[in-house]
């Protein structure tokens, strides 16, 4: 399997451990990820606030780059996934708009087709029959006894009319992957909720309360850790967890893992290799459960 990897910005910035673990997981699984080094930021739904056309043009350029490579495009961020799919949906349903976008791209030598490359989140690949088979073959350290609470991230699920990720109200992709890794999925109501990150600069209290309520739900459902496919969710759930604790005064601390970290752990990589020591909330509990197997 070979894909054009759209890393997104945060995997090269505040969550570099995501990039490290993605590379290790892909290498060990034998999946070839070719990094798209000239792809621009997806805009995170923010650039479109300034100009919807600009956001679509930048994302169409990214999709065109993957199409030119003849590869499907893989994302490692729910936000990037959602934005690229949204652009695809906007353009593919409107021939006039497609012409306008291609006119803009043509001076850079790009051409958006819209049907040559499929846009997939890494979890889509892993949850596919081929991905599941691959995990079955490659898992060397089943994560027995580790109870994992999935946190999907809004953009892969909603608006569902723009996404073909999973059932927006009852997704199973992440939990299916957890099971294939030997871990135990924990189902809890907040797994499809918002982490609050998009408004952390505008309404911090509401943002942290959202994240805190979701984490508390995971803790009360018996999870050992939360696992997310979105680095922005990771920032709010992990980096802000000490402030969430001060705000909600619930006295809990729960590690938050990136999905590729969990996958790579089951493939035999060590927490140190996956830079789990860089997380704000200690992942010692996860390490301890794995060590006691």
């Amino acid at each position: 399997m070979k894909f054009a990897l759209f890393t997104g910005c945060v995997a090269h910035g505040a969550t570099r451990e995501l990039m490290v673990s993605t590379k290790l997981a892909a290498e060990t699984l034998g999946i070839d990820f070719v990094e798209m080094k000239s792809a621009a930021c997806c805009g995170a739904g923010v650039v479109s606030e300034k100009s919807p056309l600009l956001a679509d043009a930048l994302n169409a350029r990214t999709i065109a780059l993957a199409e030119a490579q003849g590869l499907d495009l893989v994302t490692i961020c729910s936000t990037c996934q959602g934005q690229l799919k949204k652009t695809e949906c906007h353009i593919n349903g409107d021939e006039e708009y497609k012409k306008k976008i291609n006119h803009l791209l043509s001076d850079g030598g790009h051409q958006y087709d819209g049907h040559k490359s499929r846009i997939k989140h890494f979890s889509n690949i892993l949850a596919s029959p081929e991905g599941m088979q691959l995990l079955k073959e490659k898992v060397t350290r089943p994560l027995k006894g580790l109870k994992c609470a999935a946190f999907y991230g809004c953009y892969v699920l909603r608006p569902s009319e723009l996404s073909e990720f999973d059932d927006p109200d009852n997704p199973t992709a992440l939990e299916d992957i957890f099971t294939a890794l030997g871990a135990t999925p924990v189902y809890y109501p907040s797994r499809t909720k918002c982490c609050g990150f998009p408004i952390v600069m505008m309404n911090k209290k509401a943002s942290l309360e959202m994240a805190g309520n979701a984490l508390l739900d995971a803790v009360e459902s018996g999870a050992d850790c939360v696992v997310t496919g979105c680095p922005l969710c990771h920032l709010n759930l992990d980096s802000y967890q000490p402030e969430i604790d001060k705000l909600l005064k619930k006295k809990y601390a729960i590690p938050v893992l990136h999905l590729p970290q969990l996958v790579a752990l089951a493939l035999g990589h060590t927490p140190k290799e996956l830079e789990m020591d860089k997380h704000i909330v200690s992942t010692a509990k996860v390490n301890h459960i794995l060590a006691s197997q």
């Binding site: 809004c154 909603r158 608006p159 009319e161 918002c194 998009p198 408004i199 509401a206």
Partner: peptide, 12 residues
């Protein structure tokens, strides 16, 4: 407007 958290539950 700026307190909208982009969850898109309302669209759903």
């Amino acid at each position: 407007i700026w307190d909208c958290t982009h969850c898109a539950e309302c669209v759903e």
